[in-house]
Nucleic acid binder design. Structure first.
Lengths: 133, 133
DNA sequence: GACAACCAACTACACCTGTCGTATTACATG
DNA sequence: CATGTAATACGACAGGTGTAGTTGGTTGTC
């Protein structure tokens, strides 16, 4: 069942870099983050060791430097966090979440098109597995 | 446009009670919460005053007791939190969120039906406003 | 071999949240 | 009016997070 992986904004920013690159040193992550935020290198290092303590990343040591890599996948985190949100805000009802999305101004006509296609594709997939049954 | 209303699990639990009942005293909220969690009354009071400091609730004093009521609506909080999640996990792309929902096992056949109906209804609404234009 | 540079480890601190205990105040009652 | 009771106000503390400084060990270089 995989523990709940609730990550904060900064933690996610770090994870995103790791997910993209598969692995990175503290210095690389610091550089990648540095564009927008003015964080000290030690700050990034602290965050990474805390993420490691929680089991979100691990590291190898390569010539005196730590190379971190993700242990949990982006999809796991997404699932975990979306589920948490759905539980807390929509009593676990995914349809309610979608309903909210549609009702709020959050969905543009473009989005709607995309969503419809997604559903069509998804249904095709379901039928395929139906056939196989 | 309306500050970010990111609430935690417990804070949401309290807000839900307030949204349902329109208003409630500390004692009532404590009782309503008490079923599942063993919180002290003072804990609930502390949470409420902190929520008030943040502008999520306000209170009136009725014969020595505080009667709290919500200042922000459930929909506001939902929008705010869903938007935040979408930004952080899906780079702000709502369609990506829906895509994730469909791909993950999170959506049952039933849910899918409901979602399709929702979309149909939503489109009908859009056309109506198109006509009006 | 001494020294500078680099890096991780450790420590610190402020702020938020969940949790309460204690102090204080206001009311009702005898 | 003295008191006990009921509620709020206030202060505290632990655990997590963002943020960073300082320390200490390795290593490459003169």
């Amino acid at each position: 069942m995989s523990e709940p992986h609730q990550l904060t904004e900064l933690q996610l920013a770090i994870m995103r870099i790791l997910w993209e690159r598969k692995e990175a040193t503290v210095a690389e992550i610091h550089a990648a983050l540095h564009g927008e935020r003015g964080l000290a290198p030690t700050t990034v290092a602290t965050l990474l060791s805390r993420l490691e303590k929680r089991g979100a990343v691990k590291h190898l040591t390569v010539s005196r430097q730590y190379v971190y890599y993700p242990v949990i996948s982006e999809d796991e985190v997404r699932s975990s966090m979306v589920a948490e949100l759905t539980d807390q805000l929509f009593d676990g009802d995914v349809a309610e979440l979608v309903s909210h999305l549609l009702r709020a101004q959050d969905v543009s006509a473009d989005d709607l098109e995309k969503v419809k296609e997604l559903i069509a594709t998804h249904e095709a997939g379901l039928e395929a597995s139906d056939d196989r049954r």
